[in-house]
Amino acid sequence: MDDQLISRFQRGERTAFAKLVEHYQRPVIAYLGRLGLSAAEADELAQDAFFRVWKNAAEFDPRRASLPTWLFSIVHNLAVNALRRAHRRGHLPLDAAIDRADESPGPDVMTELERRKHILRNALRRLPVADRSVLALSYFCELDHAAIAKIEACSEAAVKQRLYRARLVLRRLLESEHD
């Protein structure tokens, strides 16, 4: 997104905000999906995040962080808080959530793609949230390790370490699913 569009968005122009949502809706939903959230949860969280972005547009300072870094910090905080709340309520264990039966079709009616998604989602949910989040963010090309470190409020070295660990554990989990 160019600087002109960002300043128009900060002045409260709805068309600029619409362009921002259009540009980032897919990566935001994809990030939430990689965190292991259901479609409904991801949609609700993403809507909340974009609303906050609109409300707090004046707080965005391009000298401190890029727009995707700022946006994903908001999404990340909302998602982590939602996962923690769910964990406290006992609905969804934080680091090893169980897929909800009402959202997933039975294995007999799943297509091959759905089955693979189901396996992957369950494997992702078994990763610690911090590792899962770094892995989920790493797939968005507009965020480098430094940006992910800012979002996660950790060092770049910690990002690399979490990413390595997440990939390793996920590979093992997926291989054990195949066996």
Binding site: F17, V21, R26, P27, F51, L120
Partner: peptide, 23 residues
């Protein structure tokens, strides 16, 4: 699985932008 992760497992709904704007 890596391809699936890249795609993101979920897609935004078709009316996502419309709802964000109405909000």
């Amino acid at each position: 699985f890596d391809d699936l992760l890249e795609q993101g497992l979920l897609e935004p709904s078709t009316d996502f932008l419309e709802r964000a704007m109405s909000r």
